[in-house]
Amino acid sequence: MHHLDIGWKPSDLEQREGRIIRQGNHNKKVHIFRYVTESTFDSYMWQLIENKQKFISQIMTSKAPVRSCEDVDEAALSYAEVKALATGNPAVKEKMALDVDVAKLKLLKANHMNNQYRLEDDIARNFPQQIAKLTEIIDSYKADIAHFSEYKITDPEQFSMEISGKVFTEKKEAGAALLAVCKEIKSVDAAMDIGSYQGFNMRIQFDSWSKEFILSVKHESVAKVRLGADALGNITRINNLLESYPEKLAEAEQRLETVQEQMTNAKEEVGKPFPKEEELNQKLERLSELNALLNMDEREDTETEQSESKEKEERPARGSIHEKLQIYKEKSQRESETGKETRKRDFGLE
């Protein structure tokens, strides 16, 4: 396969090569040739294909997805740049590289500024709110742990659970009463108080999304567990839920410590300048010089064209062959008429 020209999209090349790199080809090896002419528009076209393929790869990859990508479809060349490319002007190649670098640095700077605004918002509002909420949760867990220690049933023979105003001393009966209450619930997603167990109030509601019954226990905080079809199993689930409060407390304390560390780090990072600000300014300055250079070349060409046009206007018109013949014909006619008048005078006819 021979690529004699370059398409505008990577898919154009893939479609061509798909005619030779395809399932069912009896040749084990194929050859693909790409032809590029130096100091022509080919270099820009291949660079444009490369930039588009990079953009597509960033979006389509699953290994390291990015949060933002540069749109390459807005790339365009001025007439001066196209002319310079065709003549092999090295300034255009440098300008195209600088355009890409400046666009990336501007994107990095915009992300840096957005990150600074986010840090300021986190320090002023988000982190304090999270810390206050986690502190409240921790205090609630501590109060619930102390309350559970006070009302905890340590003797299995002393089991007691109140359901719908009736006290059950047998786990199996209490479990059956729970299932009976579940059958009585008719409203969806509406919680209903059903009783108490080891100092905690119990509520039941039917979750329409998961199609399950949810039991909540509450003293200071609220904890939830999903009920099953086994009567004794539900009692075990409630006991495990109450026993898990120390673990929930440890998790909340760990989250609080993490948020406090994030707030400390945010205070250290906020206010920092863009680390590549100097590099961006240097490249912007060089890019301005190159743009001025290309515009100067364009102005020189324009002035040359205007000068040539002015010279043409001032130069006497030579005229076409038809115009010359017409002038000669008119001159001959005038000379002929003059000759006739002269002859008439000579013969005394006038």
Rank of each mutant, 00 (worst) to 15 (best):
L325A: 14
Q333A: 14
S336A: 13
I327Y: 09
S320K: 00
S320M: 00
R315Y: 04
S309D: 04
K312F: 00
P316V: 02
S320D: 03
Q333N: 10
A317S: 04
E308T: 00
R315Q: 11
K324D: 06
Y328F: 09
E313W: 08
G339V: 06
L325E: 07
E308R: 04
I321M: 06
R318I: 12
S309L: 09
S309V: 01
S332E: 15
S309Q: 06
K324T: 13
E323A: 04
E323I: 03
I321K: 04
E330K: 04
K310R: 05
G339I: 02
S309P: 03
I327Q: 10
Y328M: 11
S320A: 01
E330F: 09
K324R: 13
K310C: 01
P316Y: 02
S320W: 01
E313R: 05
Y328Q: 09
Y328R: 10
E323Q: 11
S320Y: 03
G339E: 07
P316H: 03
E313A: 05
E323N: 08
E314F: 15
S336P: 01
E330S: 13
I327S: 14
S336M: 15
S332H: 12
I321L: 12
S309W: 05
Q326S: 05
R334G: 05
G319Q: 00
Q326T: 10
A317F: 08
Q326G: 01
R334F: 14
E311A: 06
K329V: 10
G319P: 00
I327C: 08
R318N: 10
G319K: 00
R318H: 07
K310M: 07
Y328H: 08
K329P: 04
Y328I: 08
E308P: 03
E311M: 15
S332F: 15
K312E: 01
E308G: 02
H322Y: 11
K331E: 11
G339W: 07
S309A: 14
G319N: 04
E311C: 03
E335T: 03
S309R: 08
K324L: 07
Q326L: 09
A317C: 04
K312L: 00
G319Y: 00
E335Y: 11
R315C: 03
K331M: 11
K310E: 07
E314C: 12
G319C: 02
R318D: 04
L325V: 12
E335I: 07
R334S: 14
E337M: 10
G319R: 00
Y328E: 12
K329Y: 12
T338L: 09
S336N: 15
K329N: 07
L325C: 09
S320N: 02
K331N: 10
R318P: 03
K331P: 00
I327F: 13
S336R: 09
G339C: 06
Q333R: 13
E314M: 12
P316D: 02
K331L: 13
K331W: 12
Q333F: 15
E323K: 06
E313Q: 06
K331G: 05
L325D: 09
E308D: 03
R318V: 06
I327P: 01
R334L: 13
K329D: 14
G319V: 02
E314Q: 12
S320Q: 04
